[in-house]
Design a protein around this nucleic acid. Structure first.
Length: 233
DNA sequence: GTTCTAGAAC
DNA sequence: GTTCTAGAAC
């Protein structure tokens, strides 16, 4: 049998099928490359249209929220859990049951919810250690989806606090007090925090949150902050 | 968000 | 040689 597709009708059709397969793969390849080029471009619209699916870990709070081992409080509107990787002796997350993705999606009608989250967070802190100082606030640009209010004791004494990003996310303006968010929502009907300098905040030199002394390394900082008291005055 | 680890800093 | 940081993860 001749292998020349030109002479044999069967071989001609196989040759044709092969060509089609090649063409289809090339078409897919060019689509992928076009999408890649788009994502590397500078236009925000292009980035949005070529957006990859969110990494799976970004939704981790949804499962943590329903994990009985982490839950410390629950009512009709909110669930409070222990942070899975606490950055201090006490570190809780207050989350609305309703899916509110982030600060940007907050509206005037959420003011009462935010006040409720703050109140229940404060009660949880009080119950944990009434003499310890706490802060309640939001990260300017959180890594995890689903609105969550951090309730964190100010000792920052935890093996899970390991790097500069951890430290600066709780001790610079990257950490926005819950009360300020509520005030802004009451004043403007939305939260429009300037988030453009957030990444720089996370890279700032390490500084003690109590006496402002600059420290060169995380271990040195952790040793230093043990000298301060975190009791309420 | 964490884990892992190469190589910088000491 | 050890400690520590910082960037990739397909």
């Amino acid at each position: 049998m001749s292998a020349n597709p030109g002479k044999n009708p069967l071989m001609r059709s196989i040759g044709f099928g092969f060509t089609v397969a090649l063409s289809v793969s090339y078409l897919k390849y060019s689509q992928v490359m076009a999408s890649k080029r788009k994502s590397e471009g500078k236009s925000e619209d292009d980035k949005v249209s070529a957006k990859k699916p969110a990494p799976f870990w970004k939704t981790g709070l949804l499962s943590s929220m329903h994990d009985p081992d982490l839950q410390v409080y629950k009512d009709g509107k909110v669930i409070i859990i222990k942070d899975k990787y606490p950055k201090a002796k006490f570190h809780f997350l207050v989350m609305p049951k309703d899916n509110i993705p982030n600060l940007k999606s907050l509206k005037k009608e959420n003011i009462e919810l935010l006040k409720h989250m703050h109140e229940k967070g404060k009660e949880t802190a009080e119950k944990s250690d009434p003499d310890l100082q706490f802060r309640l606030g939001y990260h300017a640009v959180p890594s995890m989806s689903h609105l969550h209010l951090h309730v964190i004791s100010q000792d920052f004494d935890s093996p899970c606090l390991k790097n500069k990003k951890h430290w600066n996310s709780f001790t610079t303006e990257y950490f926005v007090d819950s009360e300020d968010i509520i005030k802004e929502l009451e004043k403007n009907g939305k939260v429009i925090k300037d988030v453009s300098h957030s990444q720089e905040l996370l890279k700032k030199n390490l500084r003690c949150h109590v006496c402002r002394k600059e420290m060169t390394t995380i271990p040195a900082l952790k040793t230093h902050i043990k000298q301060h008291s975190y009791k309420k005055s």
